[in-house]
Design a protein around this nucleic acid. Sequence first.
DNA 1: GTCTATATCCAGATAGAC
DNA 2: GTCTATCTGGATATAGAC
Lengths: 222, 222
Amino acid sequence: MHYLKCESSAPESVDGRILKAALGLFVKSGYHNVSVHDIQRAADVSIGSIYNHFGGKEGIAKALYFHLLNEMQGMVDGVLVETESARERCNRIIELLFEYTETRRDIIAFVLHQRHQEFLPGEPPICSAAPFRAMREVIQQGMDNGEIRRRDPWVAASAVFGSAIRMIHLRLDEVVNEPLPRYLDEILAGTWQGMEPDAASSPKKRKPMDLPGQSGVVVSDR
Amino acid sequence: MHYLKCESSAPESVDGRILKAALGLFVKSGYHNVSVHDIQRAADVSIGSIYNHFGGKEGIAKALYFHLLNEMQGMVDGVLVETESARERCNRIIELLFEYTETRRDIIAFVLHQRHQEFLPGEPPICSAAPFRAMREVIQQGMDNGEIRRRDPWVAASAVFGSAIRMIHLRLDEVVNEPLPRYLDEILAGTWQGMEPDAASSPKKRKPMDLPGQSGVVVSDR
DNA sequence: GTCTATATCCAGATAGAC
DNA sequence: GTCTATCTGGATATAGAC
């Protein structure tokens, strides 16, 4: 929350400068192609400070990783209070991911476009981290309340978010040249066809839209 | 074609041993966490041989990269002669990708799950390589002949392949525990809903399935 | 072509003055 | 806490015998 929002021209904290510089370098060149000296130079601090604050390069990466996961969780939490139906929630999440890909590119690139396991040994895959679990939870609830056709949870999540994530990758690779929000409606239209349950498959409680606000959302279990 | 098919117990070529060992190590630990000594040990050859054959670690990676892209192109080419409609072709490609994810895991992991630009500087993103262009070409033809609803080519490609690729990633990350082919039908069912053109949007030449074999396929432009 | 032994380099990490 | 200078390990790459 406190780092990386630093568009202010005020003198930043040392931590913030280091993290911001590291994020930019990691995203541009990849973790292993960035040396502590590179970070030190870009952040305009000394090597000693880096080791004092973060214990080393991996410490920086860890801090960044958890910090950005936390920001992402905040985003998802925000969506959960703003919206009610699973469909609205997924759409809003995709919309925000698209926006951030343009306005906070490095964050999205670090979270969605890096192989964290290659430099954070012992970390589980990022898709098992809280915000991603929360996104799957949204879909699970949609299936439970009849809003989304019931199927394997992984398949459902991939069907809903797969094409959007693919577009983000293509955009980050700079093969897609238009800002992603421009494609939002087209993507969402395609996404939801085939997601509605047919009358036969989930005949029980069909109440697509009438969930009272915050209907038993159990997502903040991070 | 000649490497990596080496399930024979016959004594393999030195090149093949080196590439195979490197592939396994790169996929397991990531390019930058593998040293030439690691490869040398795993392939049971000397350092000298490695430098003689490939000029160094990056040379190995380059050779692997182009070799595997070539194998993938062969797979796509095979699909193009076996099938006719765009839908059949996409389905078959996804089916094969799912199969290979189980039976030739390292190949799929190297091609689809590594950040090549971090160790092959100067290479364009892999999605601009021939087999991926060919896959988009299939979709473009599907849109041209009215088989697929017309939309932005990137969006269409992401809609068709996005969820499948996402499932492959999840499988490679070992969060999905079932073999992917088990999900094939579920995935494909979801994929094609919403892909059909409605009567209004593409009213011209509606002939969904009656393309005579190899109808002007211009894909082998690699 | 294949190997071992060696050279060179540079990244990560530390020590210790201020 | 911050800095500079230094140490050390390990990686890539080479030399040169066979």
